[in-house]
Design a protein around this nucleic acid. Sequence first.
DNA 1: AATGAATGAGTTTTCATTCAT
DNA 2: GATGAATGAAAACTCATTCAT
Lengths: 192, 192, 192, 192
Amino acid sequence: MVTGTAEMRRKALIGAALREISDRGSLDVTMAQIAERAGVSAALAYHYFGGKDGLIHATMRHLLAEFREVVADGLRRSGTPRQRIDAVLRGSFGPEQFHRATVSAWLTFYALAQSSAPAARLLRVYHRRLRSNLVHALRQLVPAPEAERIAENLGAFIDGVYLRGALRGQVVPRAAISAVEDYLDLELARRA
Amino acid sequence: MVTGTAEMRRKALIGAALREISDRGSLDVTMAQIAERAGVSAALAYHYFGGKDGLIHATMRHLLAEFREVVADGLRRSGTPRQRIDAVLRGSFGPEQFHRATVSAWLTFYALAQSSAPAARLLRVYHRRLRSNLVHALRQLVPAPEAERIAENLGAFIDGVYLRGALRGQVVPRAAISAVEDYLDLELARRA
Amino acid sequence: MVTGTAEMRRKALIGAALREISDRGSLDVTMAQIAERAGVSAALAYHYFGGKDGLIHATMRHLLAEFREVVADGLRRSGTPRQRIDAVLRGSFGPEQFHRATVSAWLTFYALAQSSAPAARLLRVYHRRLRSNLVHALRQLVPAPEAERIAENLGAFIDGVYLRGALRGQVVPRAAISAVEDYLDLELARRA
Amino acid sequence: MVTGTAEMRRKALIGAALREISDRGSLDVTMAQIAERAGVSAALAYHYFGGKDGLIHATMRHLLAEFREVVADGLRRSGTPRQRIDAVLRGSFGPEQFHRATVSAWLTFYALAQSSAPAARLLRVYHRRLRSNLVHALRQLVPAPEAERIAENLGAFIDGVYLRGALRGQVVPRAAISAVEDYLDLELARRA
DNA sequence: AATGAATGAGTTTTCATTCAT
DNA sequence: GATGAATGAAAACTCATTCAT
């Protein structure tokens, strides 16, 4: 698969944006900084992304896509519903999710979603997908309405554990993941 | 209790900052905007807070203090350990916590903590206090090491539920709070 | 009459804009150039005029106001209708109207009116006023409908003579002014 | 008559420039916009016109040539001097002269002539030609010095009537044209 | 002949911050 | 205490132009 120059540049710029975000710990990076990192002129970044928003959103989409692929990969290898849920957990708490750039991007993204419609939309898509993965698996274990409820709470627990790890700048410990699983067990046990 | 002009001005500016943050949905507000809302000159805001950082941090401290008081109030009325834990939950999920300004401030604050040491410090203080409240109560129910573990996970769950509510711009539903309580019950039941 | 600092600065900036326009022969001047000429920072120009458009329009309004005053002055000294018409002519062809800056501003303004609504509005106001002055005077000499028609044509002739002078960068010669008066005489003679 | 690719491209680009000028109502159009309209790359416009100035001036020359041809056509059909003068009037006030692009181009061209020598030169050529057409015809009706004077004034009147129509974005009304003719009649009658 | 890729040199605009009064 | 005046520094964005292919 031959990738054209344009595609290569776009990727290079997104990578540079991520590295810059990582270094500064915030989305408050300038186009000039990013472009310099990518070894191109700022004007080129405008040429390819239309503006700063374009580049930032492309970067977020890249992160989201990466996350989706990790999870999708895990799902493909999963046989049982329980394994599928575990795949989501492993995706959410994998070390990639705790790289400084990823953490900064996620946290700023949460904030950005308050004032930027495209950011909010992207975030909703991510939430819907996460939820849908969980609901699918849970439906094979419990009745549909229960599956919805549990998926929501499980998702919240996952987000909370991620948030704390992110704020500490550390990968979340096994114990925290176990706690999420324990909660899941409790919910499933109710049905037994 | 007589409040001097200085104190009144400070409060007015913090209130204006909060209203401005609420309107814009972000901490990206200018000193000029805040000062205008407060009906004073921007220079005065500098006089009282030293700079933008000073005002923003004062605003955050104000939010944190408010939260602390709500919880402290609840704790004072609580007799049993379980009631004390419930007081923390009620404080965390009270409607005040979901005002637009509060949500914007919290979310941006998470992001800010990645690059601003004072913001990170403030956030750590908040987490430590929340945790300490929970640990205290839990210690009367389970052995100390267990209390620590449960407090951590309970805190994460609370944060997750709050985060989701915040992103949706809605107060979290009863059901979500119940889920947190269920998780607590599970943990306590283990010991039984 | 004490003029505040603000008003002084505004006038200084408008003057600087005019001088800059004069030097460059076009409205394509930068805020930085204008500000430097006025001996202040570009930021101050923004502070006082909100933006480049604001300054440019203020400059145009200034020119228009100046023109209006010259004409109004002439009208005040005029007794007969014919003298009033002459006052308009003298105002239109006075040497101030042929300063390089004024000429550049007028010509660019004509062009600007094609794409800028505020510029178009300003120009319409000017035309309406000029016309109204002429119509008023003419009504005392000929029936109303005729006054309207003659005013329109007289205005066009004036504009054409001005345009040619402007393009040549020279005050229009006496002869050209006489031609306009001759046309007026012709129209008035019809009625005799 | 076979037109080479080069000539075709040039015409296409000039046409695109005109359409773009028409849409934006100003000569402030970018090479990229023009090229995209013409369906070619911006680089090609440079290939053919050397630069933006080249393209803009070619566009103006095109407009001037078109005008000249319309007038020349009218002159060819004219027998009497008076008919020749009428041909100039018809050419100046024909509907083509009031297309948005033409109007924008003319008005901006007036402004441009203040700061661009080639634009000024082009404009002088146009004026000289217009004048020469009029003088030629008038010489057969009045003595030479008179012909010069009348031609100048007639030209100014024409320009003024055109300017007003242009600014209003409307073809000039019959009545305005009659006014110009009336003025001519007056001048010719003096001699009678 | 034709173009995609790339950029240097601006230009507008914003804002935290300072300071004399 | 309080403010109006003023600015330096930076950031986003634009565009004519060049050049290798």
